[in-house]
């Protein structure tokens, strides 16, 4: 019984561990070496999906800290990623409060809104308050690929949820 509880806890911590790992490790979903324009903001997808489906697995404090770690590793001003992650979290919370049942299509559409708001905040703060120069084309590619690949991640996370956490939406 204790062992099963422990395994369940490990599976439940999976998304959070993935979020922290992607923030702190060298592993990135930015496959520029293979395809020059490809870059992906996988953290936003993870946060948005799990906030909508299982908010209990994604503490807002953890999201905040993951953002701070990401800023340190990437060399951005401290707090900027946290802010953008929290905005995604807020949109996810709002959508969850307003909707009874969600589908892949509805999640994809609301993710688009979350992603636009998140990137808008991130890059306007970066452009106005820091010396870091960013290319608008890169931002566009990043937004496009993140949005485009959301359903793939949605399916993968859904499989994980059904297989290891039980088919129970928030």
């Amino acid at each position: 019984m204790i062992r099963r509880n422990l395994i369940n806890r490990i599976f439940a911590s999976g998304p959070l561990i993935l979020l922290y790992y992607l923030s702190i490790s060298e592993v990135d979903t930015n496959l520029e070496k293979l395809f020059e324009v490809f870059s992906l903001n996988s953290q936003i997808i993870i946060i948005y999906f799990w906030i909508i489906k299982r908010p209990s697995l994604m503490g807002t404090e953890h999201i905040f800290f993951a953002g701070l770690i990401n800023d340190v590793v990437m060399g951005f001003p401290l707090g900027i990623s946290s802010l953008s992650y929290l905005v995604a979290c807020f949109v996810g919370n709002y959508v969850r409060n307003k909707s009874v049942n969600t589908t892949i299509a509805s999640d994809w559409f609301t993710f688009f809104i979350a992603l636009i708001l998140t990137n808008l905040l991130f890059f306007s703060l970066l452009n106005n308050f820091s010396e870091v120069v960013t290319s608008y084309a890169k931002i566009g590619y990043n937004t496009f690929f993140t949005l485009f690949l959301f359903p793939v991640f949605w399916l993968l996370f859904n499989i994980y949820q059904i297989s290891f956490l039980g088919n129970q939406d928030a």
Binding site: T60, I63, F64, P77, L78, G79, L86, V87, N93
Partner: peptide
């Protein structure tokens, strides 16, 4: 509710964390 709600495993609301993140950001910048 989305801004102020705190779940069972959440000690802080999103609004309070957004404010903290903004303070950290401007202090750093």
């Amino acid at each position: 509710s989305a801004l102020l709600q705190r779940g069972a495993s959440q000690k802080f609301s999103i609004l309070s964390l957004i404010i903290v993140a903004l303070i950290i950001f401007f202090l750093d910048v």
